[in-house]
Nucleic acid binder design. Structure first.
Lengths: 131, 131
DNA sequence: TTAATAATGATAACGATTACTGTAATTAGA
DNA sequence: TCTAATTACAGTAATCGTTATCATTATTAA
């Protein structure tokens, strides 16, 4: 086991993830952090995003379109992907509902369900307005 | 709009997807179909997997670990990813539960929810036995 | 049977991510 | 505070999954 050592770059990445409402891709994080660290490397961004994910200070979200997104909110919550514009949004679902889903799923399942993540699809309000 | 033309390769891919219980990656489909078509190209596999997905005869599943998986079952259902062995399994959840989740989610959401896909995490029965 | 065109196999190109390497920053201990 | 040990860095090459290109083959409608 290797000890964690402070770094400004990691702190900046973490801070950005925790304050943004978006769910940026690694490249978007890179672009942002570049403002403070003009010659930060994309590899550093990936390394730290994975590190933060591993120690539970960030969450990785997989979508069927393109690269993974990262989220600084680590409490269980779900996401909505707009099938028109591709935006990924937070979607609140109270803990009870999440637990209820896990319980329902466990009824017909032979293993141990620890958590779940739901991705909802549809049209976001912005796209509905435009149509 | 381009007309669809029959091909043995596509038929074989489709047949495999519909009969297997697994959720193969593109490469696993490739390996399997190779038995009948020894010089099929991986590009052909991808092309047809995407085509089948587009016309609704297959489903693409994104997981946080590595490549996408494909599923010949097109009725709405959910999946379970074992955090130990990485296996992706079907998980039955009756339509009512799925609709209920979508309804609950819609309550606090401003757009239109059309569908959802839940990925459950935990340990599969095989891994539990081994521990 | 033929002409039109969609699908193929082979391979190159691509984008996202990871691995490598020598240098710089952080940290624990004297 | 200085030093030594070690982690993190920037830069870059390599890898992996996937898509695009293209000349050839298979399917299909007339």
């Amino acid at each position: 086991m290797t000890t964690l050592k402070y770094s400004r770059q990691r702190e900046s990445i973490k801070h950005f993830l925790m304050t943004t409402k978006e769910h940026p891709t690694a490249d978007e994080v890179y672009m942002h952090v570049k403002k403070d660290f003009p010659n930060i490397s994309l590899g550093t961004v990936y390394r730290n995003l994975n590190l933060l994910t591993d120690i539970g200070e960030a969450v990785k979200i997989s979508t069927p379109d393109g690269g993974d997104r990262f989220d600084g909110r680590t409490e269980p919550h779900n996401h909505f992907l707009c099938t028109r514009c591709g935006r990924l949004l937070d979607l609140e679902l109270d803990m009870k509902s999440i637990e209820e889903v896990n319980r329902l799923a466990a009824e017909n399942f032979d293993g141990l369900i620890e958590s779940s993540s739901t991705l909802f699809y549809g049209e976001c309000s912005d796209c509905i307005k435009k149509s």
